[in-house]
Computed example of a mutant assay.
Amino acid sequence: MSDAPDHLPVGDLLRNAAQILRAGAADAHKLQLHLAAVMEAEQRHRGVAADVALLQSLDRMTQILDDLAVALGLAAGSEIQGRVMGWQEILHHLRLRHVAQTLSSGSTDHGKGGQIEIF
């Protein structure tokens, strides 16, 4: 990502990461609700037992994402000094372009065009 700075204030990184985690937690929650409804319908129509462990692991992941978003968002509001150096190098290790862009700039307009990044 050539337009990203080579260093990033730590507070910006925390705030931007919290934004990504909040969006991920919201997506995971929607998935959890949908999967629960599908599993309930399967159980009613076919007698297939719901995989409770699967729903519990998805719920745990959702709560982890949400808790991390809260923690990083609150940390971003505190007095933080310093910068993350070598930011460009860090970005090269990320798989999703919209994550790199949001971490760098806080913008959430990336990846909304209906295109899915398959890796």
Rank of each mutant, 00 (worst) to 15 (best):
D109R: 15
I64Y: 04
S105R: 04
I90T: 10
E40L: 15
A4N: 03
Q43Y: 07
Q81K: 14
M61R: 14
T102Q: 03
R44K: 15
Q43H: 12
H7C: 15
M61K: 11
G113H: 15
L68G: 05
V38T: 12
G24E: 06
T108V: 15
H7N: 15
D66F: 05
D51K: 11
D3I: 11
G86P: 03
S107M: 06
H110A: 11
L14G: 00
G24F: 01
G47Y: 07
I90Q: 10
L74I: 04
H92Q: 15
G73L: 02
V70P: 00
G24R: 10
P9M: 06
P5W: 08
I20K: 02
I20H: 00
L58E: 01
E79A: 08
E117D: 06
G73H: 06
V70C: 06
A76Q: 03
A18R: 01
E40P: 06
P9C: 03
A71S: 14
G86V: 05
V38D: 11
Q19C: 13
S78H: 12
A26D: 07
A37V: 02
E79W: 02
D67I: 01
D67Q: 09
G11K: 03
R60N: 09
A75T: 04
D59S: 13
A76T: 04
Q19R: 14
H98E: 12
K30T: 11
A36I: 01
V48Y: 13
M1K: 10
Q115K: 12
L94I: 13
V52E: 09
D66H: 09
R15C: 02
R15T: 02
L94F: 06
V99A: 11
S105G: 08
V52S: 04
A17F: 03
V52Y: 01
A26M: 02
L72H: 04
L13N: 01
R22W: 10
L65P: 00
A37E: 14
D59C: 07
G111I: 01
G77C: 07
A69V: 00
H34C: 10
R60D: 12
T102H: 01
M39W: 05
L74A: 10
L74H: 10
A50S: 14
N16G: 02
Q32Y: 12
L65F: 07
A28D: 01
G47F: 08
A41L: 12
R60E: 13
G113T: 12
P5F: 10
D12L: 05
G77V: 04
G113K: 14
G111Y: 01
A23K: 14
G24S: 09
A28N: 01
V84C: 09
A23F: 11
A28R: 04
H7L: 15
G111Q: 00
L13M: 09
L33N: 07
R44S: 13
L13T: 03
L68S: 05
L14N: 00
L35C: 03
A37Q: 14
L31N: 13
L74N: 06
D109V: 15
A75P: 02
A71Y: 12
L103A: 05
A36Q: 08
S105L: 05
G111H: 01
I118E: 06
H7D: 15
H92V: 06
T108C: 11
